[in-house]
């Protein structure tokens, strides 16, 4: 019975708990990617149109 309980505890209930680190990393990558691309567009913007 003890062994069975240990196995069940190791398997868990199949639900993911926590995981905020993954979420923040994903949002960070999305926001950083979009921001860097916006910056690259600004850097490449035609000089004649900046005036």
């Amino acid at each position: 019975m003890n062994t069975l309980n240990l196995v069940l505890a190791a398997i868990g209930d199949g639900r993911i708990r926590g995981g905020w680190g993954y979420v923040w990393t994903a949002y960070g990558i999305a926001w950083t990617g979009l921001s860097l691309y916006a910056l690259s567009l600004w850097a490449r913007w035609p000089r004649e149109e900046r005036k």
Binding site: R15, R17, W20, Y22, V23, A26, Y27, A30
Partner: peptide, 12 residues
């Protein structure tokens, strides 16, 4: 229900 908070990645 199953994936918890990591499912929030879906919105990006």
């Amino acid at each position: 229900r199953e994936m918890g908070h990591v499912q929030r990645i879906m919105y990006m």
